[in-house]
Write a protein that binds this DNA or RNA. Structure first.
Length: 125
RNA sequence: ACCGCAAGCCGUUCUAUCGCUGUCCCGACAUUUUCGGGAGAGAGGAAAGUCCGGGCAACACAGAGCAUCCCACUUCCUAACAGGAAGGCUUUCGCAGUAAUGCGCGAGACAGCAAGUGCCACAGAAAAAUACAGCCCUUCCGCUCGCGGAAAGGUGAUGGUGAAAAUGUGAGGUAAGAGCUCACGGAAAUAGUUGGCGACAAUUAUUUCGGGUAAACCUUGGGAGUUGAAAGACCAAAUAAACCGAAGCAUAAGAGCUGCUCGCUCAAUUCGGAGGGUAGGUUGCUUGAUCCUUUCGGUGACGAAAGGGCUAGAUAAAUGAUAGAAUCUGUUCCGGUGAAAAUUGGAGCUAGACAGAACCCGGCUUACAGGCUUGCUUUUUUA
RNA sequence: GGGGAAUUAGCUCAUUUGGCUAGAGCACUUCGCUGGCAGUGAAGGGGUGGUCGGUUCGAAUCCGAUAUUCUCCA
């Protein structure tokens, strides 16, 4: 199923702080990606999407980018889930580019980013 | 018809699939919960800026004075307002007129400088009255006796200056002058009469002639307690110097969601009770000064009645993606008319401006692709 | 969501209760001292005071609107 429920979102402030302090991170095209292996979670992956106010002053632009990222992730997460092998991780996307992009481009970048994430998780374990 | 300006209104629509957030219904697990299915709903005219006003809530159901801040023609509308409507007064510009004045589109933080204080650079004698020059009289001295010098006084009529110079013109009057007096004007204050709810207008009488500046201090009248949904209430595994009751309570310092003063309340310790902070959740939260239609009242803002409707409620923050169709606009290509400008037919691509609810309303301000309606101006054509 | 400040020359800052041509340091240009550079001396250019409007005879200064930036409450 290509769903995106509330359990897949990370909203605990404590968990986000922990992700920033001890998580691993790398850059991929327009994103900076932070991730951290965890134990207690209802869903295999909990994600945070962030678009900095410094890059996009209008809330319209920030909301649109977040919606595009969410949509692209929703459609392409299943192949990513299969390679996780029952691990549970916290994940954060930070959009670091300063230019707006369209959905088709966004989808390509997300696919590339998820593939790179798979590799880096497997390397760690 | 076209162009421009002003005011008002609109600011995409429909279908399908995959998702997201509430609501309602049905079913499954024994309930909370979770899962599945179905129905129906889901950003704006400014949701923005946060410039005002209210509701709501807490603080002591907040009390007095001072300070501070705000408002300022009148009446009305309104829950309230610094908003709106109608009107008065002043005034820029335009038109008409010899002029007085009238009309029209606009503008106005329009109480008071005739309460006090301050300021008014440069220039100028002087910037609100201590006389610089000039003019005039008296006294004294000199004398080439028509003049010159000195002293005391009168005088705002004369001075080129300046943004601004002491009510304008004429006559009388005087040593010279002066609203000193008079005539006709101008302005202001007070009192009365008439019209108007009122601002105010007209008019009569008396008095006065007083520069500007209050978006200078200030005076007068009116108003504001402070904080702000991250307010506040509740749930909740754990054991605070916070809370409640009693004892204590003499003074001072101290504390209190207000800048100061007063007033008020509390206040170390002991005994007993009770269960808090924080993470999280529920509530506050969307039925409301509500929206739509019709009728009535009012010049109008707006109000009243009847009928109908329920129309976002997120919280690292929902309204997105894909596909198709329609229309607006823009643009490209092909063709017709035409000298050109332009206009017209077909095909392709294209919703494309400003912009995202965060407790809720009423305004104001600012941003905005394109379209519609009304009014006015210019130009052209036709009658 | 709600408060508070700032904006002046290319840069960093002054200018005090409205009034003379808005000043200072660094930077820049020209000339002199040097064989040349550095350094130093002299002279000079550069501002419509963020933008728009109002009050006033007169506004960087007073008032209103607006734009941008910074900052506080968390």
């Amino acid at each position: 199923m290509q769903t995106f429920t509330k359990a897949e979102r990370l909203s605990s402030k404590v968990a986000i702080d922990k992700l920033f302090e001890t998580g691993k991170s790398f850059h991929s095209a327009p994103f900076k990606i932070c991730w951290l292996e965890t134990i207690e979670s209802k869903s295999p992956v909990q994600i945070v999407i962030s678009v900095p106010k410094r890059s996009f002053k209008r809330s319209v632009d920030r909301n649109r980018l977040k919606r595009l990222i969410r949509e692209a992730y929703r459609k392409n997460k299943n192949s990513f889930y299969e390679k996780l092998e029952n691990k549970k991780i916290l994940l954060m996307f930070i959009f670091t580019s300063k230019a707006m992009i369209e959905y088709t481009e966004m989808e390509e970048k997300i696919i590339i980013a998820l593939q790179r994430l798979n590799k880096s998780i497997n390397l760690e374990s």
